[in-house]
Write a protein that binds this DNA or RNA. Structure first.
Length: 376
DNA sequence: AACTCGGGGGG
DNA sequence: CCCCCAGAGTT
């Protein structure tokens, strides 16, 4: 069997398998380009089971492109809370506003137009064009690269851009006439359900007979992929600043900067620990003093640590936080009034919240955990 | 091409 | 623990 026959075998059998075994996912129930778009952004680096409840809540809250374009950004971030990669949410809203202004509220159906939208890269452009509009464009994600690298025994490093380009050129040859959306989804479905990263389920695979990786006994060693650098450790000290007097029962939160890590999310005030060990000190005198001095210098907050609360560890893709958390109060005296203990409001960029109202703000997961522990 | 950007689930 | 996930933007 030559290459052209193996390619036909692949497309035909994969599509037949998909027609029988495809999952009933909420965004597959119709071809609404907006629904598809939301699902594809959420699914970037995120598993289907995680996305499903977020997708339902998001569509309920922002049913149309217009509704999302008109929503306050804070509400969009809140709907994204816990999903991660928060720039996806901000880019998405920027993009739907562009669709309202430039394309009359209709998701464009050409590659250059849709690729110009914020947050829509080569994968997402191909996914929306093929799934919503059935255009014969490739949508190459990690699943697709794994399946193709095994079936066609491609040993190039899938982290390289040239490998992705080769996979896309291959897809153009493989898409069956008139079934681009189903074919792309079938590839990803196979990668997610059968051709999994570890111990692929070859015995139930619809294309196993002609899979070069399987025939060579290499299904477990493909795809070839350079491994990521381990996250660098960071040691930090955080403060739950409890209100006193009129502010009893409240605590202070602040908004993160407009750019960078966790941009525009809310958090508890925290500073870098001068010594790594201070993050683990569990109430050490030096750690408490470092937290006091750090918040005074960086945030103009004059606080007094009262007790150690917890060690909060959190791993991002590239950073590992070790954060020692202290319950604090604003220090008494004239500075306290300036910092918001008196009639004046909270410091700039900060807000006083209580056990109920804090849930209205969007927090990264690590701070959700800390606040829940504090309120327990 | 390398780095930044979250969080969770499976083995 | 490690790997990986329906990736994109920035430099």
């Amino acid at each position: 069997m030559d290459l052209a026959q193996r390619q036909r075998f692949f497309s035909t059998n994969l599509l037949a398998w998909y027609d029988v075994h495809k999952r009933d996912l909420p965004w597959r129930r119709n071809k609404n380009p907006y629904y598809i778009w939301i699902s594809e952004i959420m699914l970037q680096q995120t598993r289907v089971d995680t996305v499903i409840p977020y997708w339902h809540r998001f569509i309920e809250k922002f049913p149309t492109i217009e509704a999302l374009a008109d929503a306050p950004e804070d509400e969009v971030l809140k709907a994204w809370e816990g999903l991660g990669y928060y720039s996806r949410a901000r880019n998405l809203q920027s993009a739907v506003r562009e669709v309202m202004e430039t394309y009359g509220g209709i998701v464009p159906d050409t590659k250059p137009e849709i690729s110009g939208l914020k947050g829509v890269g080569p994968y997402t452009a191909g996914a929306i064009l093929s799934i919503a509009y059935n255009k014969p464009e490739p949508a190459v994600d990690g699943n697709v690269m794994r399946v193709l690298s095994r079936y066609f025994l491609i040993e190039e490093d899938i982290m390289k851009g040239s490998t992705r380009a080769y996979m896309e050129s291959l897809i153009y040859q493989l898409i069956p006439e008139g079934r681009a959306g189903d074919f792309n989804q079938a590839l990803m479905e196979l990668g997610a359900m059968v051709c999994t990263p570890k111990s692929p389920h070859c015995l139930t695979c619809p294309v196993m007979e002609q899979c070069a990786g399987r025939l060579e006994g290499m299904e477990e060693s493909l795809p070839v992929k350079t491994k990521a650098k381990p996250p660098r450790p960071e040691h930090r000290l955080a403060a739950v600043i409890a209100g006193t007097g009129e502010r009893a029962g409240q605590f202070l939160i602040r908004r993160r900067p407009d750019t960078g890590l966790l941009a525009r999310m809310w958090e508890l005030p925290h500073v870098a620990a001068p010594e790594p060990g201070m993050a683990f000190a569990e109430g050490g005198e030096a750690a408490g003093e470092a937290l006091r001095a750090g918040l005074a210098a960086e945030a103009g907050l004059d606080i007094q640590p009262l007790r150690w609360l917890m060690l909060a560890e959190h791993t991002f893709s590239h950073i590992h936080w070790n954060m020692g958390v202290y319950v604090c109060e604003l220090a008494p005296g004239p500075d306290a009034a300036a910092a918001g203990a008196g009639d004046s409001g909270p410091p700039p960029g900060c807000a006083w919240v209580d056990a109920a109202s804090w849930r209205e703000y969007a927090f990264p997961n690590v701070f959700l955990r800390i606040v829940k522990e504090y309120l327990k």
